[in-house]
Structures are given as structure tokens and as C-alpha cells.
Amino acid sequence: MKEITCIVCPRGCRMQAAEENGVITVVGNSCKRGYDFAVSELTDPKRTVCSTVRTAFPDVPVLPVRVSGEIPKARIFDVMRQIGAVCVKVRLGRGDTVIENVLDLGVDVIATSDILIENGKAGGNI
């Protein structure tokens, strides 16, 4: 049996999940999403990653990014290395792809802010 704290929503349900003969039982969840999360924690834990990437624009040294979908928990630092190696040279906007299909995981690294576009229009701030 495994104690799992659900991270799907702010409720943070505390669940117990167990696997026996390929059958997973979950107690303590309040919804289906919690159940799914518990199952995934037992079989293939997944997480999202949020970070920043360097830019070529001095007024916006870094641009916030995230993965467009969940990735295997074990690959977080691999993805971070990819994110660390990027430098954005065009004024991307929110939702634009920064790294396509990162490490063949089937998700993109996307920008999460329009700051580059806005600053491009406004020209600098304090």
C-alpha cells in the first residue's frame, strides 16, 4: 500500500492506493481525477515542469515557459537541461512553442507570457 497526496487540485486529498494481481484499489479520493492520479502514481508518475528560458532581449532576460502536458516524473531534469540550453531570439508570445516535442515525450515547451511582445511594443520599463 502507498500513501499518496493528490496534487490535482488544492484540496490535497490523502489517499491510500494498493495493487494486487494487477488490480489497483484507491481509498481517500474525492473524485475520479484523484483516482486517476493515484493509479498513475503507482504505475507511471507524471508531473509538469515550469521554468524560464534565456532570451536575447536585455529588458526581458528570461521568459517563463512550461510543458504543454505532463511528462514522466523521472524525466524532469532531462527536460530542465533542454530548457536550460535554449535562448529565445524572437519575440514569442503566450502559448508559442519554444521546444517542439521535447525529448520525444510528445509535449512541447511553450511560452507562458506575452512579456516579450508587450515590451517590444512599449520599449523597456523600469
Binding site: P10, T48, C50, P64, T112, S113, I115
Partner: peptide, 28 residues
């Protein structure tokens, strides 16, 4: 200089689940 308050620097996700039914980052 920019609107958005402290969310501008909260680049992690988990925002908007109740309001938009999505897991957004702070800037989003």
C-alpha cells in the same frame, strides 16, 4: 510598469483550476 501583480513572477502552474477549469501558470 506591467499589470499582473505578483503573478508575473509566479511561473509555476496550478492557477485557474476553479476559474478556468485549467491548470495555468501565474503569468498565463
Amino acid at each position: 510598469a506591467r499589470l499582473g501583480g505578483i503573478l508575473k513572477q509566479c511561473i509555476h502552474d496550478g492557477f485557474g483550476l476553479l476559474r478556468f477549469g485549467e491548470k495555468l501558470s501565474g503569468p498565463e
